[in-house]
Amino acid sequence: MIKPLRKRHLQIWTALAVLLPLGIIGARIATPKFPAQTLLQPDAAKPLPDILKQREKDNYIVFIRSNPQRSAFQLEWLNKNPLTWPSATIYKVPKGSSVNKGILIGRIESRGTYRFTVDAAFEPEKLSTAQLILYDFIHEQIIDTINF
């Protein structure tokens, strides 16, 4: 290298010694922060106080709730992870039966807590003969089966 070239190299790197930290740290400081926002969905009903049954899976936790008088029942579905199916509906079916013979409870969407009002068929004693099926009605396939 000739001397002017060496000098230019040094000048460039002296400039970069200033510009690089400025650029790197400036860009880091400018990184935007996305604010948290209260969600509108799911618009879940208030939970009933007593938990009668509970089942925990990798992606969700299911509770059967009731009031102290056992006159009202609720199916609470805590969806922990994003769904990876086109659709997800919950059916209550007699054990061993297909979805066609089931009763539709409701649909699950994004992560969050879903509460569905259900009838006295969800009393713990009666539930032993039934099971819940999580069903994708777009692909017509069973995603999961939950026994109590």
Partner: peptide
């Protein structure tokens, strides 16, 4: 990634300035 970019740039600047001043 940020730390690596910073460390990479710091290494290059240091090497070039050390070698450059040695030549000067």
């Amino acid at each position: 990634l940020f730390v690596m970019v910073l460390a990479g740039a710091a290494t290059l600047v240091t090497l070039h300035l050390v070698a450059g001043t040695k030549e000067v």
